[in-house]
Write a protein that binds this DNA or RNA. Sequence first.
DNA 1: TTATTATATGAATATATGCTCATATATGTT
DNA 2: AACATATATGAGCATATATTCATATAATAA
Lengths: 104, 104
Amino acid sequence: MIENNEKYEQLDEETLFIVSQTFKALSDPTRIRILHLLGEKECNVSEIADELSLMQSTVSHQLRFLKNLRLVKFRRAGTTLFYSIDDEHVMTLLNQSIHHARHD
Amino acid sequence: MIENNEKYEQLDEETLFIVSQTFKALSDPTRIRILHLLGEKECNVSEIADELSLMQSTVSHQLRFLKNLRLVKFRRAGTTLFYSIDDEHVMTLLNQSIHHARHD
DNA sequence: TTATTATATGAATATATGCTCATATATGTT
DNA sequence: AACATATATGAGCATATATTCATATAATAA
């Protein structure tokens, strides 16, 4: 009797959580735009809002989201906070996807 | 006077849409589990439901979602539909993310 | 044709998400 | 201290999403 005895290895809860969280961060157009801009240059909050025509509050909320996932970091200069990318691997995923979207 | 004259190139609407849709597909634990399973082997709907302990209806709804984005395809064998991966690039993104999640 | 099995679908519901408004906090300046 | 500027935060709202239930459809067998 022929049978396939190989048991499928489920993804563990923690991996599933991290992976879904990561992709969730990249699933919103506003966050993609912010990450893409920060991929070009370090920016403060109002620069991001101006460049992308978003409300300061919107940017701040999304930056908190991205900061919680450690995808961005910031440095302070007086009252101004300069944000930049803190996870090159996630930026690689984003850039791959952008490249793919444009080339087929 | 020193000035940075380089203008930031915004992502165009269409790219933004495709990229966000792609990542949205990968942002849900149920869809991740289904794609990961299909990455191992072609499966029919009830196999997926059994293997992942999901309702048949849940699986079917999510498969429709994935099929609309052309991430999966199917072949018919009688009343049974065998689903499989139809976008290797997206699977690469998923596998990279899984690998990354596990290794740091 | 009727029955059976596999899958798909629509409606309803509960939850999550993103944005905006108003306001709070934090730093720096006068 | 009082004020100005930059950013953060909480509440409210509208929309999106995932799941479940009940039922429809499709292919096949008897």
